[in-house]
Write a protein that binds this DNA or RNA. Sequence first.
DNA 1: CAGCGTACTGCACCAAAGGACAATAGCCGG
DNA 2: CCGGCTATTGTCCTTTGGTGCAGTACGCTG
Lengths: 126, 126
Amino acid sequence: MSEHEMYVAVVDDDDSFSRAISRLLRAAGMDSVVFASAEAFLRDPTHPRASCIILDIHLGGMSGLDLCRLLSSEGHVAHVIMVTAHDEPEFCQEARQIGCAAYFRKPVPGKLLLEAVHNVVNAPNP
Amino acid sequence: MSEHEMYVAVVDDDDSFSRAISRLLRAAGMDSVVFASAEAFLRDPTHPRASCIILDIHLGGMSGLDLCRLLSSEGHVAHVIMVTAHDEPEFCQEARQIGCAAYFRKPVPGKLLLEAVHNVVNAPNP
DNA sequence: CAGCGTACTGCACCAAAGGACAATAGCCGG
DNA sequence: CCGGCTATTGTCCTTTGGTGCAGTACGCTG
């Protein structure tokens, strides 16, 4: 990834999943950076360059929803795509309310995820 | 099925039947998604994209009528087509009362079912 | 330069979905 | 009433897609 390009951030403590998504994005010609936690994402000085954040709800420490809320309260413009391993319609609803662009349950359908990512990176900022 | 298209949901715990209906719809050029229970349907984040729900009355857990009532109380706009394996005029009546568009007894006549689906997906919302 | 750690790739397994075909039941004609 | 036909459903098999595992290459640090 070159110095000033935008990238897709993948925030998930499940390493295997992160790698699968990362692989998928790379195959589609997109740069991605993996973070194992919300804190790690926030610590990274390049994180404002994330044009899209693929975010697991269940993380050690700060949850995906917390991160999403924090970012939106800070006026962060990246689009968020939520992912969860479990069945949580209430979280899905909350995620939609705080403005996340899409929501998937694992196993994540790669095709649809790619479509969603394409949509948000081409879309105007929220 | 692509990210934002509508689809027909088939909610039935009888796998063989679901497959038959799914096949029928596919042959008619319609996208369909199968769910084995009302709960599975509800927890799928894409379920608001169901333009039509083909719903068995007898399900493990929440019944088809329960689901139908829940959806209508939540202002869900999808049309519902009820299906049952047995003759249950009282359920049929109740189904009609809570606004379901059609009612079939198994074995379901494919032609009529397709007609009913066509009618509801082309109709304005209830 | 050696050891270590991280990231990428290929391979393989598992599960779900789709397609083809076989079997059964209801219907029509003779 | 009997035979054949068609529509529906049950079953098997193939294919596809997702995930875990392991090996490899690269870069970093001591």
